[in-house]
Each structure stands twice: as C-alpha cells, then as structure tokens.
C-alpha cells in the first residue's frame, strides 16, 4: 500500500474516533445528571472535536485533493467513516456513557502516549497537545468508574451491566489492517497488539478497585476499519450533516 494512502487512512480513523465520540458526548449538553457534570462532559466533547479538527486538516493536506476539515467532517457517507465502533454507541444512562468513556480513554491515552514520539512531526505535535487533555479525560472517567462501581448497590449493578454491554465493542479498537502495518513500519504509529495487554492490565486494575468484575472476552464486534458500522451510525450522520446537506456550503 502506498505510504500516503496509509497515513491518510490512519489520520481519518483517529479523527473519526474523536469527532464521533465528541458528537455523542455533545448530546449530553443540557441533559447531564448534575450541572457540574454537564459542563465537564461537554468540555471533554469540545476537547475531542478540537483533536478531530487538527487530524482532519492534516488528513486533507496528506490527501492533497484540496479537502479541508469541514469537507471531511460533513461530506462523507457512512462507509467512509472509520471510527471505532465503541465511539458511535448511544449514550444510554450515565453509567453507560462512563463505561464507554473509560474503556476508550484508556485506549486513547495509551495510543496518544506513543503518537507523541511519532516519526511524523505533525502527528507528534498534534499528539503532544492532545495528550494533556486525554490524560484528564482518563482521570475523570476513572474516578467515575470507581465511584459508580464502589458506590451504592444500584450504581454498582447498573455500571457492571454497562461494562458487560459495551465489552463486545472493545476488540474492534485493537484490530489492525494493511494501513496500520504501513504506519507501524514507518514509525508513525504504535503496534496496537503491544498496547493491548497494557490496556487490559490497566482496565483490570481500575475495575478491581471499583469492585467490578472484568467481563470475559466473548465474541467481539469488528469492521470499523472497513467502514462497517453499527445500526446507530446512520442516525448520527443524518443529524450531524443535515445543515450541510440541506444547504450545501452554508456558513454561519
């Protein structure tokens, strides 16, 4: 595979992870369980949208077809989005959102900790800025996992179920294809198979402290790297892209 194409795919995946999860979190705006939590979760959403902007802009430059961040964010169809499946899952109740966020943050933190040392200077620079925010996201979702897990009987039972429900989407985070291999060989991104045992240990550690049971690895969903999504994804795009589709090129 051509190096440029591999890097473009790679950037698109990173950008889509941030954009789609950020969009999901933004749905909590005005609906958070507490005023303070509402503000905090939206801060995370905005951080992620910031990461997406940088990654999309650079993806557009690498591609060299004159597409900017908005073209990439708003004018692709479902199968062209490459975000990990876990990012597009519905928010559910707050425990569901926290379980999804903690598992993703832990992955994202390990990934970006490596991207800081990327041989691609732009990727390294974007990662250096993002890692500070991601470290905070992880801190927050870890704290909430501990409090819900080791909280009341009800919060414990509900968040335990949340972790069981989301678990089958965690395998998809670590699937690698040709683009990943090219990127690893060039020293641009880390080998995810090396991150997986670290991710498992960290998750296990926090779940244990939260008095939660680590779900067993059963059948895992996959397909995000080929653009195969869950049934929830089309609804995200119809909301996200409505304005640009109805009024092409509109600005405000």
């Amino acid at each position: 595979m051509e190096q440029k194409q591999a890097l473009f795919n790679y950037l698109l995946r990173l950008g889509d992870n941030a954009a789609i999860l950020g969009h999901r979190l933004s749905e909590w705006c005005g609906h958070g369980p507490e005023l303070e939590e509402d503000i905090a979760i939206i801060n995370t959403a905005l951080d992620l949208l910031g990461h997406a902007r940088s990654l999309y802009t650079y993806a557009g430059e690498v591609e060299g077809k004159g597409r900017d961040e908005d073209d990439i964010a708003y004018l692709r169809i479902e199968r062209e989005y490459r975000n990990a499946l876990i990012c597009e899952l519905p928010n559910g109740h707050y425990g569901d959102t926290i379980a999804r966020q903690f598992l993703f943050d832990q992955f994202n933190y390990l990934l970006f900790s490596e991207l800081v040392n990327s041989t691609d200077e732009t990727v390294a620079a974007i990662a250096a800025k993002a890692i500070k925010e991601i470290r905070y996201h992880l801190r927050r979702s870890t704290e909430w996992t501990l409090r819900l897990g080791d909280g009341t009987e009800e919060s414990h039972n509900r968040v335990q179920q949340s972790f069981h429900d989301v678990w089958m989407y965690t395998g998809d985070l670590f699937v690698q294809d040709e683009s990943d291999k090219a990127v690893i060989e060039a020293g641009i991104g880390p080998d995810l198979t090396l991150l997986y045992p670290v991710w498992q240990d960290k998750v296990k550690e926090v779940l244990k402290e939260a008095t939660l049971e680590m779900p067993e690895n059963g059948w895992m969903q996959s397909g995000s790297k080929q653009g195969r999504h869950t049934e929830h994804f089309g609804y995200i795009l119809s909301e996200l892209q409505y304005m640009q589709r109805a009024y092409p090129g509109c600005e405000w």
């Binding site: 303070e36 503000i39 801060n43 704290e143």
Partner: peptide, 20 residues
C-alpha cells in the same frame, strides 16, 4: 461554589467550571 460528591470530584468539577 459548586456541588460534588467528594473533595476529589469537587476539584475536578472546579477545574471544569471555573478554569476552562
């Protein structure tokens, strides 16, 4: 001022509410 379940979350919420 703000609401939080404990000191650690209060600091975290303060960061998000008052220093953003």
């Amino acid at each position: 001022s703000l609401h939080a379940p404990d000191a650690e979350m209060a600091i975290s919420n303060a960061r998000d509410v008052y220093t953003r």
